[in-house]
Design a protein around this nucleic acid. Sequence first.
DNA 1: GAGGCTAATGTCAGCCTCTGACATTTGACA
DNA 2: TGTCAAATGTCAGAGGCTGACATTAGCCTC
Lengths: 223, 223
Amino acid sequence: MTTDEAAATAAAAAPTGLRERKKQRTRGALVRTAFELFTRQGYDETTIDEIVEAVDVSQRTFFRYFANKEEVAFATQGAAEALCFDSLCARPTGEAPLTALRTAVLDAWDRMGETIEELVPTELHLRMYRVIESTPTLLAVHLRRTMEMEERLAREIARREGLDIDEDPRPRLVVAMFGGVIRVTGKLWGERDDLSTTALRDIAAHQLDYVGPALAEHWSKNH
Amino acid sequence: MTTDEAAATAAAAAPTGLRERKKQRTRGALVRTAFELFTRQGYDETTIDEIVEAVDVSQRTFFRYFANKEEVAFATQGAAEALCFDSLCARPTGEAPLTALRTAVLDAWDRMGETIEELVPTELHLRMYRVIESTPTLLAVHLRRTMEMEERLAREIARREGLDIDEDPRPRLVVAMFGGVIRVTGKLWGERDDLSTTALRDIAAHQLDYVGPALAEHWSKNH
DNA sequence: GAGGCTAATGTCAGCCTCTGACATTTGACA
DNA sequence: TGTCAAATGTCAGAGGCTGACATTAGCCTC
């Protein structure tokens, strides 16, 4: 999935001929139109026919670009995930796993804007994220994608630490716990009014400060 | 969802009249037949028509018992989740959150057998779990259900500790982290040959022992 | 135990997602 | 310009799911 998205982005950056450019234009139009309809009237309330009619292509063409209706909804998420993974790979090997993950995510969110803007307006991307969080079908898919992402992160952590991922449970564990924090962050952010990446950053940083305390044997009543 | 499942189980235990008994029989037949077909030939490869033909009811009847094809696949999971939640509620208030969660889950797995057996043979339930883990669509739904479950657990933890869940992030965090461990456990168990609940217990206990070490600043190279 | 009430089921038409097969158009490139 | 291949369109159809309406079958009362 990430490979596909990366390839698509790379191709968009360096279009070879007219054919390739046209393809990117069609794909982009489908994504933007879908996002607009999904955010305006809801995911379930939008049919493929509406999307393809607005873009003026056949339904069959839609399904040649996207395997299913869900996939178009995650067009920008793929780029975001790739960014996050790359950030982790860029962290120095000496850094402790949890620290590296934390820094990588915050880092990725900082660089998010420019990358996303190439595909759709950032504001639309953020509004779409809320649609994903509030649409049961999409939320389910999102969680599965997140799980796949976590597996990749765990393998990278294992590589950094020189461990065999099938022998030592710690890489998967630390990523799973970290993923839990991020998920809670996303949820809280989705419930707020502040639709900005800085708000997202703040919540995440705040949550991560509580990882230690939350695992303590006994919690003091005041926080 | 849990309320529905609990109600269904309760009704099965004390059927009032012939009407109610017939309904439970139909529901049970649908679940068992679906499980059998799903585990034998796969979820995607099984059509609703196949199920209803084997049970000899109309397709419309199926959709009156289950909102969609996915729901029947989670018929026994609902009971398992309820059991887990009840176990947590039964833990003494003095127990530390993480300890209570750990004990509750291990406890629930011990009592799983009897509860499930009322619905379908336990072995079928376990085989079905593997189908869920290995079918993308079902895995996605499973993760969403898990997330909803985690929200309920977090609220119970907050209640036990006398905290406001919207003010203090720790309840959601500890549950999210714990959930991560359980998810890894389920995944590892699904990949093994040993299809028993005791194996599940062992893996979980082993994983939980690593929660502390995984969060440590630096990991020693030997485990 | 006949008859009315209502819950459960069946039937049917139709929408939406998604796929395979085949025809048509349109860049690319010699 | 003409050939090749890639992209798109058209069409038929399977499978999931729903609303509307008809039919069946427990239940309850007199």
